[in-house]
């Protein structure tokens, strides 16, 4: 198997796709992902300067790449990039579309929120822990009230519900969480949430797994997924709201 970061020929790429289609080998998928990470970065950069951190855009574009790899059919004799580029760009556009439908924050608050985001990441990397509000306020020269306001405003950036089923049905949970699926089953059993969980997309399920089964903190999840802590916080909140709504919908309200 070709090593990572090696320029692959079209024949090698096709061969890898054939292999992946036959046995869903995650190692083959990793090689394919690695081979196209430059494309992911290049497409993510196209959408930079629109108010979203580049790291988050790379993460979104990577999700598009994973979808493209799973759905690509090498037998159709089309180059992978021909198929992947619109898929990845579509994922990025959907990301902005979802966010554009939300409340538009005042520019000052938005900029403060970005500065806060960067400061939290920097602090977490330097100190290997999440900062307190006071620490982060001192770091970027804001009052604690301004930091709290910015933290909350980041929650309002996107209000679109994530419980809409996306077209990710062919990406199994196993693909996302590797060999740890037994623990996820345990979560399902423990909560009797099978129905509600199945309405969440793979990313949301993965997030719950990392937070509540692996017990990672938001900062640790952010590092693992290469996104910001604030983004993890937003995703987690929306995922939990979706889960609660799904559950409430399946249970008659009891008289108290």
């Amino acid at each position: 198997m070709p090593s990572r970061r090696q320029k692959l020929s079209r024949e090698e790429i096709n061969s890898l796709f054939q292999t992946y289609q036959e046995n869903n080998d995650p190692e083959v998928k990793r090689v394919l992902v690695d081979a196209y990470m430059d494309l992911v970065h290049s497409l993510a950069r196209r959408f930079a300067n629109r108010g979203e951190p580049l790291d988050d855009l790379v993460q979104v574009a990577s999700m598009g790449l994973l979808k493209a790899i799973d759905r690509f059919e090498p037998d159709r004799n089309v180059q992978f990039t021909t198929y992947a580029v619109p898929t990845i760009v579509g994922e990025l556009r959907r990301y902005f579309r979802d966010r554009a439908s939300a409340i538009r924050l005042p520019r000052g608050l938005r900029e403060r929120s970005h500065a806060l985001n960067a400061a939290i990441q920097k602090f977490s990397q330097e100190h290997s822990r999440s900062p307190s509000v006071a620490e982060i306020a001192g770091e970027i020269g804001l009052t604690e009230e301004e930091v709290i306001e910015s933290l909350e405003s980041s929650e309002a950036v996107a209000v679109a519900s994530l419980d809409t089923t996306t077209d990710e049905g062919d990406l199994s949970l196993l693909d996302i969480v590797g060999g740890e699926d037994k623990a996820l089953e345990m979560l399902d059993e423990r909560l009797s949430l099978a129905g509600a969980m199945s309405n969440l997309d793979a990313r949301e399920q993965n997030l719950l797994y990392l937070r509540f089964i692996e017990g990672l903190s938001q900062t640790e999840i952010a590092e693992r997924l290469h996104i910001s802590q604030m983004h993890v916080s937003r995703l987690l909140r929306r995922t939990l709201n979706s889960l609660r709504q799904n559950l409430s919908g399946t249970e008659m309200r009891r008289p108290y």
């Binding site: 307190s132 509000v133 709290i148 933290l151 909350e152 938001q218 916080s233 909140r237």
Partner: peptide, 27 residues
């Protein structure tokens, strides 16, 4: 949520812990 974040901040909890508490109180 804002009240909980403010209290968590006063108690010197980290942003991670404050957010956990926030989610719990919101629940």
């Amino acid at each position: 949520r804002m009240a909980t974040t403010a209290v968590a901040s006063r108690a010197s909890l980290s942003i991670d812990d404050a957010d956990d508490l926030n989610t719990a109180v919101e629940e």
